[in-house]
Amino acid sequence: MKPQGRLMPKITPETSHFWQGCKEGKLRLQRCDACAHTYFPPRPFCPVCAHDRVSVVVASGRARLYSYAISHIPAPGLEPPFAVAVVTLDEGPRMMTNITGCPQEPGFLALDMPLRVTFLDLSDEVALPLFTPEGAA
């Protein structure tokens, strides 16, 4: 039997700019034209002030490790142990991700460590934004 891949996102109209950006190697966020709040996940209005004029902005790709748990339970396309991580982007929003390019052990996963985005190509439509320790190859 073919090994099962990761659970794949199914892109919706409100999120297509984000996933298209990932395929182009860009991490796209949205920023409110009225109050300048930068946010994620995508939606066509500001979650702080409800303004409906928002712009797509490209994030720096820099982030810090906010928290994680190291799963010893198998998940589709992921071999345990693997860290289910949440990072804080330099622009402010947080996102769930995996940390790649380092052992999945607490000693290598220090909270607040600097990270940068990297993209894992999965299909013609989807590349997942993962993060790797700053300075790693």
Partner: peptide, 16 residues
């Protein structure tokens, strides 16, 4: 949103 932005990273069941 959870299916797009959490499940692909293994955030699927309560323990993770």
């Amino acid at each position: 949103l959870a299916g797009q932005f959490e499940a692909p990273f293994g955030g699927i069941v309560p323990p993770t």
